[in-house]
Amino acid sequence: MTGGPARVDHGVTSGTFSLDGETFDVDNNVWVVGDDEECVVIDAPHDVDAILAVVGNRKVKAILLTHAHDDHVRVAPGLRERVTAPILLHPDDRPLWELTHTDELWDVDLHDGWTIEVAGTTLQAIHTPGHAPGAVCFLAPDLGCVFTGDTLFNGGPGATGRSYSDRPTLVASIRSRLLDLPDDTVVHTGHGDDTTIGAERDGVLAEEG
């Protein structure tokens, strides 16, 4: 391959998250998986130019959304226009998407087990509802990592308690879909620092439910 081996590139964008009548300042991770020629973008928060700074001059094959909270999808349509790539989202998150985007939709429905190849590596969608009904993690086995959005953080499961979220469902998703991964699997999160499956295992298993 002339583009070199697949790798993970990272950026951080800053903006707000709004739901249930409250707004918070947040920093979001942007993850780009690919080589020197092509890539996919995971989540589209806050600032198209900041995302494109991570992408560089590569061809974007797809914009993959872990879920449809506004801080993860706000600039997805604008990014789609700039890079001419489809937006992929799990259809169960349509109610959340429509809170931010009332007059346009994503392009392709994500479902559990869906795969995409980029730069010689494969990403697989894992449906992990709980933080949001259509929350999805993206597993990259060849790279030894999983992109968890707001499903699993450094420090445990993601937040619940707001509309469309449910703590027992979230913990069950992590237990059944993520804890079977090797302990050294790197967890690239939607906010904050990386962790590993092994580092989070005991905390998740200690959760009731």
Rank of each mutant, 00 (worst) to 15 (best):
G134V: 04
V48K: 02
P91D: 08
T160N: 07
V54T: 13
L65S: 06
V41M: 07
T148C: 12
R80V: 04
P129H: 12
W106N: 02
G161Y: 14
L99I: 05
A132G: 08
A62K: 06
R82D: 00
D70C: 12
L170Y: 13
A119I: 02
G156Y: 13
R162E: 12
L139S: 12
V73E: 01
H46F: 08
G161Q: 09
D43Y: 03
T128Q: 05
E81V: 13
P141I: 12
L52I: 10
D92P: 06
P95L: 07
P95M: 10
P77V: 09
P91A: 12
E38Y: 05
L152P: 04
P45A: 11
L96T: 01
L96V: 05
T169C: 14
N57S: 15
P86L: 11
C137K: 07
H69A: 00
L96S: 04
D103P: 06
V54S: 03
F138M: 04
P77R: 03
A62S: 15
G120M: 14
L110N: 04
V171E: 06
I42V: 15
G156L: 12
L96I: 09
D166G: 10
D92K: 07
H46C: 08
V83W: 01
P129A: 13
A135L: 08
P168Y: 14
D49K: 09
T84I: 10
T66C: 11
V40F: 01
A172C: 11
N154R: 14
C145K: 04
N154I: 08
P86Y: 11
L143M: 15
L64S: 05
V83Q: 03
G156P: 06
D71V: 05
G134Y: 00
T121F: 04
P141L: 07
V73Q: 02
P157F: 12
I116G: 13
R82P: 02
V171N: 08
P86H: 08
G113D: 12
T160D: 10
D92Q: 10
D107S: 10
G134S: 09
L152I: 10
V83A: 02
H131I: 03
A125E: 04
W97N: 00
W97G: 01
G158D: 02
I51S: 01
P129N: 11
E117H: 06
K59C: 02
T66A: 06
V55L: 06
R80T: 07
Y164L: 15
Q124P: 06
T121C: 13
G120W: 00
F138H: 05
Q124M: 15
A62C: 11
T128E: 04
P91W: 07
L99H: 00
G149M: 10
V41Y: 05
R167T: 14
D142E: 15
C145V: 15
V48N: 07
L143R: 10
A50W: 01
D71N: 14
G130Q: 09
L79M: 09
L99D: 00
H72N: 13
G149R: 07
T169P: 05
V54G: 04
V83N: 01
D43R: 13
V118F: 01
D166M: 08
S163K: 15
P141T: 14
E98K: 13
V136S: 05
R162A: 13
I87F: 00
V118P: 00
